[in-house]
Nucleic acid binder design. Structure first.
Length: 638
RNA sequence: GCCGGCGUAGCUCAGCAGGCAGAGCAGCGGUUUCGUAAACCGCAGGUCGGAGGUUCGACUCCUCUCGCCGGCUCCA
């Protein structure tokens, strides 16, 4: 007997029937749209499992969202088939915030076609077709698809082992599909088509390019509205919009080159603060700072294996006095060369080399994206070289270090991914096991949620990747901690042990922020351009009310600067206070010091915060103390 | 690289059936001296992304090209 948990906690016991059947007997069928058993979604038309607990889902259950969206994708496909005879269907799954369907249209469609597709979808929803599940014997299924000209579906079916093939049918529309689906199309009430894009059939760039239509669906109008507002907010915070608006950085594809970033004074100031903080923390944690060149001879990259395995990511060589040089795509070989520059004793280990190292990698033009995907970037790189007995501690310490630094930037939600040994690997399994265990224990010691990606480690070692969640709840992969069993071998890295013999050290690559460019882009979006005081390029704007107060305002700004606060007196003549405040707001400057005749008289300034809060006239000492405090604590509070 | 869309002043955008290229903001000059998100007047600013074609005439139509955006793909 399976136990069925219904909404409102009531329970049923049943066996040998489908959930749909069971509920119909109880007169509840309309509310339930899916079933959850062992963390897996099931169709209400499926027979209930023999034992265990089944949670019956209503359309408002978060777990049911996937079913809703999958059915929405079918409604989309049905609408498209009605409007574009001759279209072929590929695949149409639910995704994390909506759904899509890939089509092969007889002729190109454009975004302008989305509204009428949406209209047709609405009519399909209004028709409220029951969604039926149909199983066809393989031969019959193939014939059906062949007759319909559904060549993509035919290809999919050949990968399905089952003899009875599952289809779903709603009205005149029938689609090869494993399900589950809603009971009827009328339940897809709140949806919207969002985008149109190209997508290769089966993600394979050698195959045909299909047209993908993206949409989203929610159980309520409010949830849909909220999602659309969220998209709008994300658009508003786009670092590619805010970056130039706040005069932080620019990219000039035509004159300078795609994926190459110019850091303007304000962006450079933020970067400087990040780097200073980063260096201080690294010194405190026992790292040694390095600087290494931007190019190196071909033989170096030959020895490292980059030319064999990573050539397509590297720029073409340059000829210097008959020798080939390559611009560096990674810093590791240089760090190793420093390690290898003399004999190392076991007493010296662990050695922690850190570098803000600028590297250049070829990325195809289509993937470049603002600061998030560039061709030249500065990694916050480090290599930890240690003995086997130090691995466990080093990993634990580096992970804690990483989280600590990320928290300072206002990130509090983390998820870890542990990637283990792939089929093709270098090194010995014992070393892999030791390393993988150390990684796992470190994650567990920090109490992080994590998943294990079996076999997804690089061929040279297992790794941890950390995703952070930003203020819009978007995940970004930042930190990576990777073992390397390859380079120590290739460069014959050794240390002399207690036993007087040479041993091979363990080497760990790690980047905490990833790259400064990408991290900056993420920070801009995370804060919506409103940096906390310690990072804000301009921390205080001193605003004179009339030209009379210009000298006083300059004096105030000078006092603040002397106290280590980035302050500017805004002394352009003829601007009203309202104007200056609006300017400062748009620049997202945390503190505005209003200086009128009254303040000048009293040697004070009226403090206004970026939040709009007016704190009234205060002594300069008081204001300076407040701002200094926020900067020192690196808090987002004003 | 591929599919779709888009390129008009520094920025945001309007314009066109093919007939002298427009507005707001920013900039510059002046007036105003102002109390918490845009004072007022004026001036200047464009090879309409680039090249070729159709046409008496192209910002407008066609072809190519460069760039951007949304995705796909790749990421030892």
């Amino acid at each position: 007997m399976a136990k069925v948990i219904l909404p409102q906690e009531s329970q049923l016991e049943a066996t040998g029937v489908s959930l749909e059947e069971l509920l119909r007997q109880q007169g509840l069928a309309d509310e339930i749209v899916g079933a959850l058993h062992d963390g897996e979604l099931h169709d209400i038309r499926d027979p209930l499992p023999a034992t265990g607990e089944v949670k019956a889902l209503t359309i408002t259950d978060p777990e049911a969202l996937e079913i809703l969206r999958h059915t929405a994708a079918h409604v989309l496909a049905q609408a498209v088939k009605r409007l574009f005879p001759g279209v072929k269907l590929a695949i149409g799954p639910a995704i994390s915030d909506g759904f899509y369907y890939d089509f092969d249209f007889p002729e190109a469609i454009s975004r302008d076609d989305l509204p009428r597709i949406e209209e047709e979808m609405k009519s399909i929803v209004a028709q409220d077709y029951p969604v039926e599940r149909v199983y066809l014997p393989r031969a019959e299924a193939e014939k059906l698809l062949r007759d319909e000209g559904e060549s993509y579906k035919l290809e999919l079916i050949s990968d399905i082992p089952d003899q009875e093939i599952s289809f779903y049918k709603q009205g005149e529309f029938m689609d090869l599909c494993r399900g589950p689906h809603l009971p009827s199309t009328g339940l897809v009430k709140h949806f919207k088509l969002l985008d149109l894009a190209g997508a290769y059939w089966r993600g394979d760039s050698t195959r045909v390019m299909l047209t993908r239509i993206y949409g989203t669906a929610f159980p309520s109008a409010e949830a849909l509205e909220e999602h659309l507002r969220w998209r709008e907010e994300a658009r508003r915070r786009d670092h590619r919009r805010l970056g130039p608006e706040l005069d932080l950085y620019s990219i000039h594809n035509d004159s300078i080159g795609a994926g190459l970033v110019l850091w303007h004074p304000k962006g450079a100031r933020v970067r400087h603060e990040i780097e200073t903080f980063w260096k201080e923390r690294h010194f405190a944690a026992g790292y040694q700072l390095l600087y290494t060149p931007h190019i190196g001879r071909a033989r170096l990259w030959q020895q490292s294996g980059h030319l064999d395995f990573y050539r397509e990511g590297m720029y073409a060589p340059m000829d210097i006095e008959g020798q080939e040089f390559y611009i560096k795509p990674m810093n590791c070989p240089f760090h190793i060369a420093i390690y290898n520059s003399r004999t190392r004793s076991y007493r010296e280990l662990p050695i922690r080399y850190a570098e803000l190292g600028t590297v250049y990698r070829f990325e195809r033009s289509g993937v470049l994206h603002g600061l998030l995907r560039v061709r030249g970037f500065t990694q916050d790189d480090a290599h930890i070289i240690c003995r086997p007995d130090q691995v466990e501690d080093e990993i634990r310490v580096v992970l804690r270090f990483a989280l600590d630094i990320l928290r300072t930037f206002g990130f509090t939600q983390f998820a870890a991914h542990l990637s283990t040994r792939p089929a093709k690997y270098v090194g010995v399994p014992e070393a892999w096991d030791l390393a993988t265990d150390a990684l796992r224990r470190a994650i567990e010691a920090e109490g992080l949620d994590y998943d294990v990606k079996e076999g997804e480690g690089a061929f040279y070692g297992p790794k941890i990747d950390i995703d952070i969640e930003d203020s819009l709840r978007r995940a970004w992969q930042l930190t990576t901690i990777q073992f390397d069993f390859n380079l120590p071998e290739r460069f014959d890295m050794t240390y002399v042990g207690e036993d007087g013999r040479e041993h091979r050290p363990y080497m760990i690559h790690r980047a905490l922020l990833g790259s400064l460019e990408r991290f900056f882009g993420i920070l801009i979006e995370h804060y919506g351009g409103a940096f906390p005081p310690w990072l804000a390029p301009v921390q205080a704007a001193v605003l004179p009310i009339t030209e009379e107060q210009i000298p006083y305002a300059e004096g105030v700004a000078g006092r603040l600067r002397a106290a280590g606060i980035r302050a500017e007196a805004w002394t352009r003549g003829g601007k009203t206070l309202r104007y200056l405040i609006r300017e400062a707001q748009l620049q997202k400057i945390p503190y505005m010091l209003v200086c009128g005749a009254r303040e000048a008289e009293a040697g004070k300034a009226a403090l206004r915060l970026r939040t709009g809060e007016d704190l009234g006239a205060q002594d300069l000492e008081e204001i300076i103390a407040r701002i200094r405090d926020r900067i020192e604590r690196k808090t987002p509070e004003l």
